[in-house]
């Protein structure tokens, strides 16, 4: 029972697991399974770049798949549950980032060729450098003749 879609939520393994042990769970597990299966994102704008920070702890850099297509940046993770031993041993489950996809519309001012990303300490940091023309130009004083 995979890839079921209910409204805006993509239902991943967190929900599969949920139904398996329905009676052992409490209501907060259901709420949190929805709430925490998509990673939160912080966005910054600097003079020469935009920066996206995606909080997705517990993954490996190789789990991420990133692509830019027609001005849209997509970050996708589809991690298989290898460790069957742990399944069903959860007493409480409030986060799980093993399966998600998040897309961003890139601003026109971003140079898609120069995008770089790094996964460090559970945060995926995506650097989106601005195009030269879009960078803040230094104030120029004009001489009056």
């Amino acid at each position: 029972m995979k890839n079921l879609k209910y409204g805006p939520f993509e239902v991943g393994p967190a929900i599969d697991g949920f139904f398996n042990n329905f009676m052992d769970r409490n209501l907060s597990d259901l709420v949190s399974a929805f709430r925490f299966s998509e990673p939160a994102m912080n966005m910054l704008e600097e003079a020469d770049e935009f920066r996206i920070e995606l909080a997705a702890p517990g993954l490996d850099k190789s789990d991420f798949e990133m692509k830019v297509d027609a001005g849209t940046l997509t970050v996708k993770v589809e991690k298989e549950f290898k460790d069957e031993k742990t399944t069903g041993k959860f007493k409480r489950r409030e986060f799980n980032f093993s399966r998600f996809s998040r897309s961003f519309q890139l601003p026109e001012t971003v140079n898609p060729e120069a995008i770089e990303a790094r996964y460090e300490n559970g945060v995926l940091v995506v650097h989106l450098p601005k195009k030269e023309v879009a960078k803040a130009q230094p104030v120029k004083s004009i001489e009056i003749k």
Binding site: S32, F36, F90, N121
Partner: peptide, 22 residues
Amino acid sequence: PPVNVLNDEEAYTIQLAVPGYD
């Protein structure tokens, strides 16, 4: 921060999601 707690025969395991913290 969100937390997962696992319980097995040998131990309890607590996992805290604390991305970005040293």
